[in-house]
């Protein structure tokens, strides 16, 4: 039997909304795919677009960035800046030929446990369809 490809998805979650939303999904015992590697950041505005490039280099097949809904940012405006940045980063990645399904961004609030489940299912499904990422993955370095 051919083993099914399990993608490796890196998720940058903001501490105040999306991380709490994922936590709620956990405490509510909502089932969702376990392909996610969560990295907690203080705000989606803290995510440097180079994190995405670096994640893809180091073996991610998909990237998800999630923050508070616009207007709900704990730091007032962090997610507005993130939105501009990643709108451009997404265009740039697609332009050099990275599959559009690999980069995702979402707004998930602390009370949206079920939305979080839908988002993760969607992201993992898309990463599965896109297949393993090999375009500019970093080779293992043997020092």
């Amino acid at each position: 039997m051919k083993e099914q490809f399990e993608p490796n998805v890196v998720a940058f979650l903001c501490n105040w909304c999306s991380y709490a939303g994922a936590d709620l999904a956990g405490t509510s015992r909502i089932q969702y795919p376990s392909n996610l590697n969560v990295i907690r950041v203080m705000c989606s505005g803290r995510v440097n677009p180079l994190f995405v490039v670096n994640a893809l280099q180091q073996g991610a097949d998909g990237v998800l960035i999630s923050g508070c809904h616009p207007g709900d940012c704990h730091y007032m405006e962090g997610n507005f800046y993130a939105r501009r940045r990643f709108a451009l980063m997404k265009e740039l990645l697609e332009y050099v030929g990275v599959d559009a399904r690999r980069f995702n961004m979402s707004w998930v609030s602390a009370s949206e446990g079920s939305k979080w489940k839908d988002v993760v299912q969607g992201v993992v499904e898309k990463a599965k369809e896109a297949g393993p990422f090999e375009q500019f993955r970093r080779n293992k370095i043997n020092w």
Binding site: P70, G71, E77, F80, A87, K90
Partner: peptide, 12 residues
């Protein structure tokens, strides 16, 4: 800078 009504059609 930002505008509250920036496009966000790419966001899930």
């Amino acid at each position: 800078s930002y505008r509250p009504d920036d496009k966000e059609d790419f966001i899930l």
